[in-house]
Simulated scan of single mutants.
Amino acid sequence: MSSSTPEESRSIDDHCTPDALLHTAPARDVTPEDLVMAAGRDVTPKTLDWARRKLETEGAVAVEKLLP
C-alpha cells in the first residue's frame, strides 16, 4: 500500500479545466429542446410545447429559473 498523497500521484499533464471553459453562455438563442433538457425532462411533443410556451412568456431567463 502506497503512502503517497493524491498530489504526488498526479502526472505533470494533469491540469484543472479553467472556470471560463466550464461556465459559458449559449452562442445562440435558447431553444425549446435546450429548456426541456435543462429541466431534466425527456424531449417529447408535450414537453416541447411546454418549453415553447415558457420561452414565449419568460424568454431565455426561463433556463436560469431552473437553476438552484
Rank of each mutant, 00 (worst) to 15 (best):
D14P: 05
K54D: 02
P6G: 10
H15M: 14
L35F: 11
M37S: 07
T44Y: 01
V61F: 07
T47E: 06
V36M: 08
R28K: 08
A60M: 10
P45R: 07
L22A: 04
G59R: 00
P45I: 04
E8Q: 13
M37Y: 12
D34H: 06
C16S: 10
A38N: 04
S9C: 10
G40I: 11
G40Q: 06
T44L: 08
P6V: 15
D19W: 07
D34E: 05
E33I: 14
D34K: 02
R52E: 08
R28A: 13
M37D: 02
V36T: 00
L48E: 06
H15G: 02
C16V: 15
E58V: 15
R52N: 04
T31V: 14
V30E: 11
H23V: 01
P18R: 12
H15R: 12
A51T: 08
E33H: 03
T44E: 09
L21Y: 00
D42S: 01
A38P: 01
T44Q: 00
A20M: 03
S11I: 11
L35M: 11
A51F: 10
S11V: 13
I12Y: 05
D13S: 14
P26F: 14
K54W: 07
K54R: 15
T24V: 14
G59F: 05
E58F: 08
